[in-house]
Design a protein around this nucleic acid. Sequence first.
DNA 1: TTGTACGCGTTATCAT
DNA 2: ATGATAACGCGTACAA
Lengths: 319, 319
Amino acid sequence: MAVTLKDIAVECGVSYSTVSKALKDSPLVTEATKRKIKEKADKMNYIPNNSARSLVSNKSHTIGLIWPAVDRVAITTLATHVNEALKQAGYFMVVSIDNPVRAASKFLELRFDGVIVFDEGESTTLPEKITNNIPVIAYGVARELPYPIINVHHNWAMKQAVDLLIEKGHQNIDYIGELHTNDIRQIVKQETIEKYCEEKQVNYRLIDSGGLTEMAAKQAVKRFLKTETLHDGVICGSYDIAMGVLHHVDELDLQKTIVAYDNIKQFNSIETPIYSVGVPAEEIASSLVKHLTRSIETGSENNPEVIDLYPSLQFHEKK
Amino acid sequence: MAVTLKDIAVECGVSYSTVSKALKDSPLVTEATKRKIKEKADKMNYIPNNSARSLVSNKSHTIGLIWPAVDRVAITTLATHVNEALKQAGYFMVVSIDNPVRAASKFLELRFDGVIVFDEGESTTLPEKITNNIPVIAYGVARELPYPIINVHHNWAMKQAVDLLIEKGHQNIDYIGELHTNDIRQIVKQETIEKYCEEKQVNYRLIDSGGLTEMAAKQAVKRFLKTETLHDGVICGSYDIAMGVLHHVDELDLQKTIVAYDNIKQFNSIETPIYSVGVPAEEIASSLVKHLTRSIETGSENNPEVIDLYPSLQFHEKK
DNA sequence: TTGTACGCGTTATCAT
DNA sequence: ATGATAACGCGTACAA
């Protein structure tokens, strides 16, 4: 049986409310008794009971992250940054790889203070039944939602990519990304390419990566190359897809310009010169945390706000 | 403010203890009132308070998974299987990507029912201070630990791999894996290769993959190939490393025999014929869950038991 | 400065 | 069949 405040109180010959105060450094307790109590608590290996605390304070200092698809390097990096940012802000982050609605329901039952969703569209939408009861923030692309979402402007990013390729003199562009999907982020990228290339009057082809992982992209490009050849202006839908594409691109082919979506440090260790465009993972993380904690601390309702973050273009030279 | 049992009681004109019973289908309540209460509860969007439950029952029906390095495909697959198995067993799984000791401490404070650790050696070792207070099970390779560990016999697996290569007539073997690391799993693989190849009197080389990710392996092999060439018997330390190595292997090179550690379904979609050797992820998952839940339900102390799981060899033909 | 007492939402035991 | 009540561990307003 775990050690409780009472146990410590008995040991120290004080009442348990004094112990409670002492352990949270209340000014209402003498330094001397405080020290004694803390020492004892430590010696007895006291572990505060969050359930009890949460019952009285209505706070768990814990945030749940809903992240159904634990793969893809890019998003892993983001999760790590979010974890750090939350720690800084005094929260513990916990992730569920379960189905989003089940995950959120459990988070509610556990009385977590807030939830973050890596939004992918329909499949990750949380019902109001849930979101009326806990601060929520999503990360993804702007869409009709009863809770705030960090919008990373995939369309803006894709336009920058196209502009860059045009500037480099490429009139033929290949976009490699996931085409047949419900993931709204992927859809936006694809549609932007279509519209913007037409607007700018450059030729483009859409090549289906058949998924978001490196392996899927690698195989898709391989199939493609059996009958066709890649143009010199290439846009990849994500870091992982770029990795898959690069298997088939000669590093010494300096004709080609490759631009990939995402903005993570891993691009720096690629051996082929490459451009990337996206919002830095740190920035996304700190924005998520800032908005969520504000909403928690003010106790305000979730509102359908869209928080815009703008991508930036970077060049990664050959290492 | 969240709906409580009391609120429902008032609405239904019964006492809240009746509501409590009704909602857990106690036989002590009439079907009629039960139905009425359940209906109301649903309508009022009642969400049970796990903190309160946990306080009285000492159970949270939640398990924490400690998984500091969310990358690598192979282990992601395992996590997914563990999540499923725990769900079947009536538990909710939650993962922390934080530093293992902090994660475990928080799990304790949250009064989770048990913790699973993806063990990597020193860096993921939990102190007794913690493990004396909660059922723990690790996944990794046998080592001195105050709590049970599922041992997947990397050495057995590597021996099978070497035997296979010898049988296929290869007297020169290349092992590609992470060589300079504290990760005990990698160390065991490496050392087994060394000893067993010497015992069997076959030539071998150790090639450092410089990490456990596909990208690291890919670059390492590329460097290697600048001055040397790969032997026809190749052993890869993991699925991800194999993926990195395959970038440099011609699919049509039927001279080569490639064996990779791990046993996950992803091997089936590789386009190069490949062998794999390892314990199936499902089996690891169900073993982890079985032992942990037994330990939770019997309330027994953590003991330093080693649970052995044996790898099996599989061939994946060209798709 | 320290102690007492109440309440948080729930379960479980005991009366009714 | 239903209701009243104690207890779980803790925070805090109030009393001493």
